[in-house]
Design a protein around this nucleic acid. Structure first.
Lengths: 211, 211
DNA sequence: ATTCTGAGTATTGTATACAAAATACTTCAT
DNA sequence: ATGAAGTATTTTGTATACAATACTCAGAAT
């Protein structure tokens, strides 16, 4: 089956890339004309993508003065963190039994994560892949969608933090303990450890931001 | 402070109204040109509003063939219901103590709800106001925002159900029991009853849809 | 030196134009 | 009548045009 994809979707992905690559640091103004000419398309689909990113909390849209990349803000981070924690918890619950193969894959990701010290981007990608893999079996499509959208927010904070801290604190310990509980099929404990993992992460990022 | 609001926001609200009023029943194609001329504005802000509604799951956007109002679907309803249940639970938890005045207001809404038998729209408005009032003190701005966006989905199902069932089953009993727990400051029980309330509602709508 | 002022430019929000694709309609063969 | 094929008409996605607002920065006033 063939599917033409709208330009706005491609534009969306490109802009997300630009932001996550750090080409557009927090606070930068994003001019639709500039992006449009960079991508070789017109303003219309670019603006549609920017509007979407604004709804997702990545960009700020002020009437009459266009778009800009949101500044990092501890409150916003804590807020989205709390939401993601709850939603990923829900997703984990509704997952059904997690096959051994997937648990093995999770351990595998952790092993690679533990071995990746210097490469910030790789670290974040692996951490996110870990979460995505964990919730792969969640049948609630919409939940998965909301989660992956929301993840864009903490990802920005993690990147800034890791860049700044110069040390990779993404502890794979928590991950390991969660996997351990899942292996025993103790969903209850796994969920509790999962939310604990989130809380610790949010706290770490929060105190760093408020330094 | 004066604030000009973008046309797209006004268009958004108008279209939401159209859908909720039932002028655009599920399955209807929504032509941007038509809406634009109805509202007396151009296609651009209308399309921006439609795109947003598509992201929110109210409209379906198929490449090359525009927008249409989503058909009612039990799975979708259950999915969003589960998410909303979790999120409103989280919001309730992070609310802090709920002042007696607000609890009184909740009872007041329930009283009015119990007395409103025939008017479907009024019922739904009251039910939603009840929820909004309950979570009024939630400091997590973004959470409140996501919740109110997601609410658009169940609202459509409730309307269809109430219209069809001809009887108002929106039991204020559950509400009363939640309020009772909150009066005793027993947040734990309140939260449990709250999620139970959601589950029952979802189930009722689900079985009706699958009739 | 700093703050105002205002012309000139850039950028935005919205309207319109246009080409491609989807839909509706007509015509003709069965 | 019914259905296929081809043509006209909408409608869509995207590009461009335009008017209004916001920014820039040189020069005047304090």
């Amino acid at each position: 089956m063939i599917t033409r994809t709208p330009l706005r979707d491609q534009a969306y992905r490109e802009i997300v890339e630009l932001i996550h690559r750090g080409d557009l640091p927090p606070g930068t103004r994003v001019r639709d004309t500039t992006v449009a000419s960079q991508l070789g398309i017109s303003r219309t689909p670019v603006r549609e993508a920017l509007l979407r990113l604004a709804r997702e909390g990545i960009l700020a849209a002020d009437m009459g003065r266009g778009f800009s990349v949101c500044r990092l803000d501890a409150t916003e981070m804590r807020e989205t963190g709390a939401i993601l924690s709850a939603l990923e918890g829900l997703a984990l619950q509704s997952c059904g039994d997690i096959p051994a193969a997937r648990l093995a894959r999770l351990s595998e990701i952790d092993r690679e994560l533990a071995g990746t010290r210097s490469d910030v981007d790789r670290c974040i990608a692996l951490d996110e892949e870990w979460h995505r893999t964990l919730l792969e079996g969640c049948p609630n499509q919409r939940l998965r969608d909301i989660i992956s959208t929301l993840w864009q927010v903490p990802r920005r904070y993690m990147r800034a933090y890791l860049r700044d801290a110069r040390r990779v604190t993404l502890s794979t310990q928590h991950h390991a303990r969660i996997i351990e509980a899942l292996r025993r099929n103790d969903r209850e404990t796994a969920a509790r450890r999962f939310s604990h993992h989130w809380e610790r992460g949010i706290e770490e990022l929060g105190t760093w931001l408020e330094r």
